[in-house]
Design a protein around this nucleic acid. Sequence first.
DNA 1: GATCAAGTGAACAATATGTCCACCACGGAG
DNA 2: CTCCGTGGTGGACATATTGTTCACTTGATC
Lengths: 160, 160
Amino acid sequence: MDQLDVTLIDLFAEEPRVGVLEASRRLGIARGTVQARLDRLAAAGVVTGWGPDLEPAAMGYPVTAFLTLEIRQEASPTSGHDRVADHLARIPEVIEACTITGAGDLWCRVVARSNPDLQRVIDKVLAEPAIVRSATVIALATQVPRRLRPLAHAAVTDQG
Amino acid sequence: MDQLDVTLIDLFAEEPRVGVLEASRRLGIARGTVQARLDRLAAAGVVTGWGPDLEPAAMGYPVTAFLTLEIRQEASPTSGHDRVADHLARIPEVIEACTITGAGDLWCRVVARSNPDLQRVIDKVLAEPAIVRSATVIALATQVPRRLRPLAHAAVTDQG
DNA sequence: GATCAAGTGAACAATATGTCCACCACGGAG
DNA sequence: CTCCGTGGTGGACATATTGTTCACTTGATC
């Protein structure tokens, strides 16, 4: 992961249509180098995919909310966390979920078609009896859109 | 946005190397149709890009945390939110940020090289004087990895 | 019945890909 | 000091893909 890798990532992020050959021309390096770098980034797990980036709002889900769930900790046939994770994974409106420190046990991001529709989504989430409490926060305006490239720059600038 | 669009998105998400031609063969449709669909999805804003997906952990930032910030609401030269958003945008470790309902004013996701390093990142965030209070929650284990394709399926199945 | 958006199948030149190769430069290990 | 191994270069080749345009067929809408 060096400066060239980051430049490469930037180039492909900004102009996905450029091929390997065009990229090599733009950066003034050999085509084989570009291919090798991309392979290496993928092998290192830095680049995990090249899939299309989807926008929930454009798909009809403009409302985003964050749920903090509290899970029943008692002994149960299966672990409470596993059960809940399984449950959440079956709900398409749940975009991501993870366990967290602090008051809540589980954090998850959900989307909905509208504010009323958010109630439907929350109800789906709360259908799992292992969830004993939940708190909802609605996302209003995006201040910093999801972005990882600045981090890539920092990763090579600060250290390597 | 219909079933074919979703199938197309799935195909490209799973095998990014397949070209337009190969995709048309796999799905048994004309090449022109694939191209037109992809153009349409991009024009509709459903597909916002084809950039490489980056993994912060693989770049040396395995720690993820969520910060809830409270912003000073008093009158100021520029709006408090704008100032803070600007400040956050300059910090590469800030992956995303948005305003929220509820107790806090601003929510943001940050990453760090380690737990001690998280302190450094938080200090950077809190350097902005318009932030009057903050709460930190550390993400432990990912239960549902970020995913939008199930949502795409739901979008066409439930309605259209 | 007319019209429009969308899909098909085909064609073309231009370009990119996958995959070899030999060769050079550098840094670390011995 | 010399011997690799890794990474980069530049070139070659056949094959496959792209961008683009065309004429024709649908199916739904008005």
